[in-house]
Amino acid sequence: MPDLFHPQMMGYLESLVPQRHEVMLEMEARAREIGFPIIGIAGGQFLYQIARMMKATRIFELGSGYGYSTAWFARAVRENGGGVVHHVVWDEKLSSQAKDYLGRLGYSDIVQFHVAEAVETLKATEERFDLIFNDIDKVGYPASIPVIKERLRPGGVLLVDNMFLHGSIFDPANTSEAVQAIRTTTKLLTQDPQFISSLIPIRDGIMLSYYVP
């Protein structure tokens, strides 16, 4: 049986995504230049599609980088009639860069910026969200799931990035802390009867988990 994932697959998927705003192209170029791990073009389109399909107006990002994934979510929220996307990073510089990019995209009124630890920030909120995106340090994934369940509305969606961890999860001899955390999180989401989960093989693997009402 031939390999399922052709080496040209991601380039092909990215070619199917409609042309982005010039600021988005700038963000993509920066990621290539400095090797910053953004969700990617096809991944961003996937996030946007899910948010649009479920008419999400309240989105919380755990680990937001310089705002590339935030931009896809903010676009969806705008087209869904308005709402809020929470952008959360530890780093003041990344937060400042995100404010610049998202401001130039016209999303300043939609995005709320936090410079803080992401899971604790989510825990401190008092609302439930339509969609939560998890892209924090991978070792922290398992402990984040109970907090996410408390803040995700019934019928909401959890998206988790890097569930292949650059292919390292496929090596049974790899028992690093990060790999073990990804494996634990995968079991938590696929074996929990409160979630219906599928692992989507876009870029580094995106887990899509529906929180059953």
Rank of each mutant, 00 (worst) to 15 (best):
E26C: 11
E61Q: 11
R151D: 05
E127C: 13
P2Y: 11
Q49L: 15
G167T: 13
Q19A: 13
E127Q: 15
L122G: 06
R78Y: 13
Q191G: 00
L94M: 15
P193C: 00
E117D: 15
A71I: 06
Y48I: 06
L131N: 02
S95G: 02
I145P: 08
F36G: 00
D3L: 15
L25I: 11
V119H: 02
T125Q: 12
Q8A: 14
Y48T: 00
T185E: 02
P213Y: 10
L158E: 05
D3M: 14
A181D: 09
R32M: 05
Q194R: 11
M54W: 01
E117V: 10
V85P: 00
S198Q: 12
A31T: 09
G43D: 03
S168Y: 04
I169W: 03
V119T: 14
P213C: 10
G40P: 02
G103R: 01
S108E: 15
S108C: 04
D137P: 04
D192A: 08
P172L: 10
G35Q: 15
V212G: 03
Y107R: 01
A116T: 06
D100V: 11
Y66H: 04
L94C: 05
S198K: 07
L105K: 01
E28N: 08
T175A: 07
A51H: 09
F46T: 09
I202V: 10
P142Q: 08
V23Y: 07
Y101W: 06
I206Q: 07
P7T: 04
H114R: 15
A124W: 07
V147L: 06
R153N: 09
G83P: 01
L47Q: 06
D204M: 06
S168H: 07
L131Y: 05
V139D: 04
T186H: 13
R128Y: 04
A76N: 02
K99E: 15
S96P: 09
G43I: 01
V139P: 00
A51Q: 04
Y141S: 07
E150R: 15
L105P: 00
M207A: 14
E28P: 07
G67D: 12
P213W: 01
V17H: 01
R183F: 14
F129H: 04
S64C: 12
E22H: 11
